[in-house]
Design a protein around this nucleic acid. Sequence first.
DNA 1: AATCTAATTAGATATTTATCAAATTAAAAG
DNA 2: CTTTTAATTTGATAAATATCTAATTAGATT
Lengths: 197, 197
Amino acid sequence: MQLNRLIDFHKALADPTRLRILILLSHSPLHGQAIAGKLGLKPPTITHHMTKLREAGLVKERREGNTIYFQLERRVLEQKSFAFCSLLKEEETDMSKTKGTLRTEAIWRNFFTPDNRLKTIPAQRKKRIVVLHRIASSFNHGQKYEEKEINQIIQRFHDDFATLRRELIIHQFMYREKGIYELNPAEMWPASEEREI
Amino acid sequence: MQLNRLIDFHKALADPTRLRILILLSHSPLHGQAIAGKLGLKPPTITHHMTKLREAGLVKERREGNTIYFQLERRVLEQKSFAFCSLLKEEETDMSKTKGTLRTEAIWRNFFTPDNRLKTIPAQRKKRIVVLHRIASSFNHGQKYEEKEINQIIQRFHDDFATLRRELIIHQFMYREKGIYELNPAEMWPASEEREI
DNA sequence: AATCTAATTAGATATTTATCAAATTAAAAG
DNA sequence: CTTTTAATTTGATAAATATCTAATTAGATT
């Protein structure tokens, strides 16, 4: 499991001293004693923290003569910041693959072609919701979309993107603000089946 | 300082048990005993962890009869995941507002050590101007300096104070009159910048 | 070779924290 | 009002960890 890497990353950011170190390094690279000086700590303490930051991949170092400069790895920071969110998303799609109920699958078979096109928009509300679920899942949580992009993506399923777009809003899969669309959190999505709890 | 909130957030994600809880909740809301069962832990332990997750804003709860369902707050998770990156970016733009553009910072990183020494005198005129800017800024407008003082101050940056002093004059950062030096008004200083990216 | 400097390691201490068993509380159901 | 049930609080324990001083190491410089 690579959960451990994730934990080490979050542990690295779970300490005030280390956050302050990273903030300092965001201005410019620094060597150990400079950091110690600015934070009012002793060099061994800095070594301790730099070890953890290094293990998390958040800093790299270069030697210059006798002194070692530490330097922030911004890209790693950004990648790992979202790692857990991504993991949850994977889990989610895995789940819906294995857990999609028979009933749902039947609806899919009826309304989607094998290459993922929507044959017709279901008239019955419950079936329509199931279909909308699948369409909404092609968008990413947290990402903002312009109407053009929305239409494009919906059109991969069906040509009547206007109706489907409106349905996504009506049933709270997404919301619109000043022409920008974004997914609602999954908890706001309508349940497509009975509750399982 | 809202650093504490950030720390609490990362602490929340810095424990394997809590990550597993969040993964469970990403599938569906669950009540305490269910979580305890799935993880092979006792209810008090779950209470302990849910307290921390709640304080970090990562879960909310709803009561149903006697049992309490916990539910993941995806939006909060996504927002806070990037919070520290955003903070660093703000820091950075603050820096460049007060101290110069990104390009300037790159030059600084290349030519100055972290403790403000000039590694080498840039050969390229534009870069030299940027460097001279920083050195000239250590003098006060309106104050008169003797050559000895000038040398001393420049020497804090680089041992070749003669060259740098001459450059400061040539590029009109300062002028000399009867052995007395003084800064020119800032409007006479050469522009160090082309444009920001 | 001898010395200097920055960094690291080792060892000690105090704080935090993950976990559990036992006791208690809160709310619903009888 | 009493009982039931899930959750919480309390108190204890073991593990992790942030910090320091003192000793050591790794590289440069003389």
